[in-house]
Design a protein around this nucleic acid. Sequence first.
DNA 1: ATCTTCCATGAAAACGTTTACATACGTGCT
DNA 2: AGCACGTATGTAAACGTTTTCATGGAAGAT
Lengths: 335, 335
Amino acid sequence: MATITIKDVAREAKVSVASVSRALNGGTGVTEETGQRVREAAAKLHYIPHAAARMLITRRSNTIGALLPDLYGEFFSELIRGIDLAARARGLHLLISSSHDGVAEAAAALRAMQGRVDGMLILSEHVDAAFLRSNLPESLPAVLLNSAVKNSAYDVLNVDNVAGASAMVRHLLDVGHQRIAFIAGPEHNFDARQRDKGYRAAMARYAPKMTANVISGDFSEESGYRAGLELLRQKTRPQAVFAANDMMAVGCMNAFKQAGLSVPEDIALAGFDDIPIARYIAPTLTTVRVRIVDLGRTALERLAALLEAPDQSPASAQTLGCEIVVRESCGANVR
Amino acid sequence: MATITIKDVAREAKVSVASVSRALNGGTGVTEETGQRVREAAAKLHYIPHAAARMLITRRSNTIGALLPDLYGEFFSELIRGIDLAARARGLHLLISSSHDGVAEAAAALRAMQGRVDGMLILSEHVDAAFLRSNLPESLPAVLLNSAVKNSAYDVLNVDNVAGASAMVRHLLDVGHQRIAFIAGPEHNFDARQRDKGYRAAMARYAPKMTANVISGDFSEESGYRAGLELLRQKTRPQAVFAANDMMAVGCMNAFKQAGLSVPEDIALAGFDDIPIARYIAPTLTTVRVRIVDLGRTALERLAALLEAPDQSPASAQTLGCEIVVRESCGANVR
DNA sequence: ATCTTCCATGAAAACGTTTACATACGTGCT
DNA sequence: AGCACGTATGTAAACGTTTTCATGGAAGAT
């Protein structure tokens, strides 16, 4: 079937194209009777406005782009869900470019979206101020997620890793553990650094007599396992271990089990993220949960606000809370 | 900064807009020296062609739409990854509409994408032939994923649940189990029905003396737990239980453990999907893995082929294999 | 030297909308 | 009755590309 245009509707309704446009969009400036006739004609012909033509003249695509790195299951899907839900509520479309590693790929993806989107949601480790300056036209509104960019030229939305980690340390202290070790994440990772920071801050503040005990890791289960072995070799074994993410906690737990220690009786354990597995391992894992859906939703809402009033709202930095999920591995229930 | 157009580039390079277009697109029909000058001018001005204008005249958006239901973590992210990778390799953009339940929502989402995409990838339980006829213009190429639609008017790409389930039954038989029970999924779910079918077919074929033993479930962990209890009440206890998905297998395993049975010594267990948890529970779960990334990739490639040659290729139905992942729960290693 | 052929180039139309502007008509006022 | 005004409608321009067609000049053939 040949595509049917606004002209066909105009002919069918016996009015001009201008009236069709008015009737179908605002509804204003057109008589009730005319509007009725136009709507009927449009429905009868199954008319669908040509998106490109509208974009061209309106200079609006009603689409926002999401630039994402290679992301893991739960996090990715929850984030998209949050974004998607909020976007649909606003009649915005969602253009996605995901799973690219490397700054070059990210740049290419960013450029490819240019001109198709009204705004961008960006979550990427490779993104820094310089990158944005050269790849993102300043006219394009953007919200950065989990980004270290402090530039203040861009809107940033971060998870409050510091507060989350700090709260977990405090919880472990409350339960009675004094010597708390920390398994850190990759050095270049923003989240990892923030969690490290939260751990150190909380230790300094709430357990000033203790010294920070940080083992390095890279967020992988394997590195958690190695860290666990290393901790067992220390002269005075820690009473509790706080891993910067759940996967490392899982690896660490295996190391402890293999060494014949039982968690949490002999040594307590906590993670960060609350991945689904945390609920299913034995003992179940105490961890810090991030409301990822909220992260996505909030980011999109912030971006939408930027679209409405481009100039008026200055760049802001917002932060999203986490909550502690107490399960068995921290020993809160056994003492 | 005012948007810069092809005209600005033309002026800068001292040629006509036509030459700019030619130089930047095909590169053909233009002298090497002119092409050079144009590319330099474009680069200097940071020219980015206006996508909408191009779409309007070309009648191509280079975008494909993905319509997805409310999907779980791993599956969703892997599927998108597969689609995204293949799409980017072809220079296609990805417009996503996910997490809608209900046929009305799906219809709205489908319609909203009209005119913005060159083709559609559709994965939804609500989609049947009638739905498509009334919501999908026949001019829009589409590939259906995991769909029961046999219509042959549309391209369909399914996971070979039947073969996967059948292979698992055979494996359990090979290991020495004769009395194999099956925990079925939701009745209206296409995947669930296919797996049921595979179980029954394999039993009839490879263990003709045994009768099929099917307990109903709904894919939830809770329903798996209930099914486990029910199985334990049967007069002659099955030697192995095959759950239609991993979550039910997990629930079932908990029921067995609570009853004091050990898996796989007292009773063997297998699932379907290979969700990440399968690797982390104790005992680790034998299951059927679906290469979801391949599913997404293959679907997109099929769609891309449709875009290239809309008429030539008739609707096809393709099916994607699964593989058995042998872990501890089936007892293959203890006998 | 003239004719043909080829090819790079430019002018202009076309894509389907929205919207600024002009027009015409009815209504209320003086 | 005449005038101003508001409002529904239509006409046409504009958005930024791609592409068809015409044009001109260079190169090759006679």
